[in-house]
Nucleic acid binder design. Structure first.
Lengths: 354, 354
DNA sequence: CACACGCGTGGATACGTTTTCAAGCATCCC
DNA sequence: GGGATGCTTGAAAACGTATCCACGCGTGTG
């Protein structure tokens, strides 16, 4: 366990000043012979500049933060893969943290990143806009991926209860400072279009009582579902889980039991979809004879499932890649939001209304 | 974007020296009133000590490196989840990198971690022992998870070709320094026992022509397979993939086509298992009537598969958790290797030999 | 009463780097 | 030929922290 060589060691061994070493290594100007000598010595000593020293001096850290609700969800795995790919090409390390879909834990992790001086982050947010305001006010460059943080009820008076908010809405002109949206770009899948396609596909097959099984976040997907379904939406057919597998299963099972009349369900994510086929099987509902099933997010096992699942595919890896690019590529004015297309992949889990 | 408060700001605002602030915040001694005042000021300024400054001063970084071949593989997702869980409880950030099962990329990532002064790493190694020697010699505390690095052919003379190595071996006393095994602990699943159980289960069902479908690493699993199968092993029935999904599918498909006489296959990992059921389905082989299938590693979709897959479950999350614990918990003498149990979960993908 | 001792405190230093600044030197143009 | 200009170079400062050391003060002991 020998101690690492420092820039000072290199300078001494090469008979130059440390400033020269620094210049040579960061591509500054130097005479050819000096440069060559320094490079040779550095290589021979196996010198690696200390990122800590550099970061301290430059008052910023290289490095990209990555915040996801759950590393176990394969969608976030693909997203992380994309982030890692871009970060690697940019030579930046990425520090990963899981939030467990819990705003409080998310705040804690943001604090940790702040402490590490990680000033660029791609995040799949769990908390609302208020959770994130401290981060962007601290100068963090944050890029949201997959979903946006909920608009917080009110920035100035978090204690407000419903009546007050109604008043504010009725008023039209908010009394307190408006909860101006976070100044952060985002890269998302085209939820609306994806859900619309799914619903149209199902209605085209004759389905009328279609349920939506949603997780946390993705408000847009629910909205799109309501929208695509047309006017009278049976609110009982829209159920939510918290993000854990257990909760997803409970939601799916509860839905099937309380409303045996549903003929089709669209699952808002792969763990929801998994829960739905599990629950259906447990209740002896045949797919697609008894109930049709369509899932947002394509995963490898969708094809292996019985029956193979019809899905709305979304480019998880690309989402991560583009988000990392937005977070890391500084300089050019960044687009506010990029939306990536989804695709309906028809397999065998949807059938005509019986 | 206000600049962060430094320890100096806190000291001035509290009317004390920076040394006192540092002491108070790191639990040193101070008079109660001073302590209280400093804490109040720190809280009011929202002061966060800079990890960079601290790390530079202390010549080490908090932080845990995590190196996995592929974040997309759900097994590594669970492993990462465990690592994150322990790291969070220890208050340490984790920097993640994917190696793509490529030793060269792995070396690159090790270098990156070294540069970041990340001196503790849990790794699912891709390269051989030689790839890792620089890391441990640089003072890194590395804990291997899930698998061990291959013993490198020879440490001192990497250019050796076969004849020389034979000579060395015949000699009995190696000329160069012996390739002493890496001085690093590891936490592994009980591969041998798991595979043995799987093979016995299959032979108990009457199977004789059993194939093994392996990925990179996990030399122990193959060995155990040979061992459990008894003396004459048909080498054609042991095939390997490189770690990508495509390669796994090609291997599985090739196996089924070249040896239609196999009646059972054990897949050495979840992506191999996935590939096997895909390939079987593509070739119209019914599971388990035409071929029985057993997979190492339990995953959520195994139950959803048609038929539900019989698996050897391994505690991926625990592996990560324990590995992180070993890497982070300093002081106490660490065990050399911890082996976690596996469990046979019988579902429906194995039938009696037809 | 003098002395030692313990405790709380702050100044100074070092960690490894980048960057500024001025100096040394050769070259070029008028 | 002289001054200006360009290039290379090294000393020094700064980034934010932890820690060593010395100092002042109050208390207990000889």
């Amino acid at each position: 366990m020998e101690k690492r060589a420092t820039i000072k060691d290199v300078a001494e061994a090469a008979g130059v000043g440390i400033a020269t070493v620094s210049r040579v290594l960061s591509g500054g100007s130097a005479s050819p012979e000096t440069r060559e000598r320094v490079l040779a010595v550095a290589a021979q000593l196996d010198y690696r500049p200390s990122a800590t020293g550099r970061n301290l001096r430059q008052r910023r850290t290289g490095g990209l933060g990555l915040l996801v609700p759950d590393v176990t969800d394969t969608f976030f795995g693909r997203l992380a893969d994309g982030v890692l790919a871009y970060a690697r090409s940019a030579g930046e390390p990425v520090v990963l943290a899981a939030t467990g879909a819990d705003p409080e834990q998310e705040s804690e992790m943001i604090g940790m990143l702040l402490e590490q001086s990680v000033d660029r982050v791609v995040a799949v947010p769990a908390g609302d806009a208020e959770t994130w305001r401290p981060a962007v006010r601290a100068g963090m460059t944050v890029v949201f991926a997959d979903r946006l943080p909920l608009e917080s009820a009110d920035g100035a008076e978090p204690d407000d209860d419903a009546p007050d908010r109604d008043l504010l809405l009725l008023d039209g002109l908010p009394v307190a400072a408006p909860p101006r949206p976070l100044d952060a770009p985002a890269v998302l899948a085209d939820d609306r279009s994806g859900i619309r396609t799914a619903v149209r596909y199902l209605t085209g097959l004759g389905h009328r009582r279609i349920a939506y099984l949603g997780g946390p976040g993705h408000h847009g997907r629910v909205e799109a579902f309501r929208e695509a379904l047309g006017a009278p939406v049976d609110e009982e057919l829209i159920v939510f889980a918290t993000g854990t597998r257990d909760s997803a299963y409970a939601a799916a099972s509860g839905l099937f039991q309380s409303r045996p009349d549903v003929t089709a369900v669209v699952a808002g994510g792969n763990v929801l979809g998994e829960a739905a086929v599990l629950a259906a099987r447990e209740l002896d509902l045949r797919v697609p004879q008894d109930v049709s099933l369509i899932m947002f997010d394509d995963v490898p096992w969708a094809e292996l499932c019985s029956p193979p699942l019809t899905v709305i595919a979304q480019p998880g890896r690309d989402i991560g890649y583009r988000a990392a690019e937005l977070a890391l590529r500084t300089g050019a004015r960044r687009p506010r939001t990029v939306v990536l297309p989804t695709e309906l992949i028809v397999r065998a889990s949807c059938g005509p209304h019986r």
